[in-house]
Design a protein around this nucleic acid. Structure first.
Lengths: 211, 211
DNA sequence: GACCTTCTCACCTACGTGTTAAGC
DNA sequence: TCGCTTAACACGTAGGTGAGAAGG
């Protein structure tokens, strides 16, 4: 768990908030291979999905939970000879809008009692027709999801308030329009239930994890 | 279109806002038969879905759009001998929470450019496990969906601000756990694509409308 | 017994997959 | 040609139907 410092003041009571990545074992497998995520015009889900568990909140306080898609650097990347490498200057970075979890605002009790899931968000490389459920990203760039927790029941100016932010090293990935590394494709097919039709046995095996 | 007066002051510029019911021809058919909506523990969608078109907004202003499920009277109803009639005092009315359209807040331009759809909301008769996408309703009572428009980009205290409200006479319905009027069942099967399997021809005919 | 609710079911729509071929 | 993107496709999962039986 990587705890990022915030520029605002955090209520002392929230210093114990902890966020754990769900499906971290699966994420680790992808990370070891070099995670790639498909991006398309209409939008494509991430797999694994971004899901976390929260603890240490004040059960009676109200919180908003947000997901951000942060750009890790200003490079463009290419895949050649089985290797990823930089390929010049990246596209100009559009400041990311955060995705507010639909259950926001809710009590600490509520958040801690469920798996906080953003598995339905999509990655799109199409600017027009923006959608609250889609992150605009450029293909062949590096990204990392991030989670923000804000102690408030006021959704409107949630961006101006002090927040606690978390990110996870193993959720970093590169965007592609077609998978580059065959090892990644193999992991996707093996673990994503929606890709069961592409398994060697034709989909008889159960996947270890549900989407 | 029934325009309801609001107790708050509406910005003069928004006096021209108009809301038209989508699928009004279908709604009229159901209304003529006496619309019934299934309600279940887990939640059941409405059919037809509640969808509207908005015009007359200020393209550059920000608006929130909300749906409410209003209780039309304090009676309980029964269906007997092919007729609906009152059957004593209804259940105590729980003040309804509004469902905020997920695209809120958005510009007038945005709202006017799309069909504003609440077709995924569900009706549930189970109090526990409340969900933002569910309206709690009592079976065998009368309801009517309503739409509220608020000129603001502040989602938090949207209920306290001046609003313009619309409802449509032909969207009134009674809640049931099992359809009472066979004519209603027939209309549902004929028009809801999810019920295509129950059509006399086994689902060969196309429905006039998509869910 | 009459009435209403709940559960399970077969059958359908909706949509998330990687593949492949075509487009630029 | 080469590199990348797009669209059509077959094949899965997820979930919305009313029917009918069972429960209260």
């Amino acid at each position: 768990v990587v705890r990022k410092a915030s520029e605002n003041v955090i209520p002392p009571a929230d210093g114990n908030i902890k966020v754990d990545l769900h499906d971290w074992e699966l994420w680790n497998k992808f990370s070891a291979a070099g995670t790639e995520m498909i991006v398309s015009k209409g939008g494509r889900r991430m797999f694994p999905g971004f899901r976390v568990r929260v603890s240490g909140m004040d059960p009676n306080a109200q919180y908003c939970v947000l997901m951000e898609m942060s750009r890790l650097d200003e490079h463009r990347y290419k895949f050649q000879n089985g290797q990823w490498s930089t390929a010049g200057q990246g596209e100009p970075h559009v400041p990311e809008k955060c995705f507010l979890h639909l259950n926001s605002p809710a009590s600490g009790q509520f958040w801690m009692n469920e798996i906080v899931s953003f598995h339905k968000v999509k990655l799109s490389n199409y600017c027009g027709n923006p959608d609250k459920g889609k992150f605009f990203v450029n293909s062949l760039h590096r990204y990392q999801p991030r989670i923000h927790i804000v102690r408030t029941d006021d959704v409107s100016n949630v961006h101006l308030q002090p927040k606690i932010s978390f990110s996870f090293q193993q959720t970093e990935f590169k965007t592609v329009t077609v998978y580059q590394n065959q090892e990644v494709t193999k992991l996707k097919v093996q673990n994503n239930p929606f890709a069961r039709g592409f398994r060697p046995d034709g989909g008889k095996t159960k996947n270890a994890i549900s989407a």
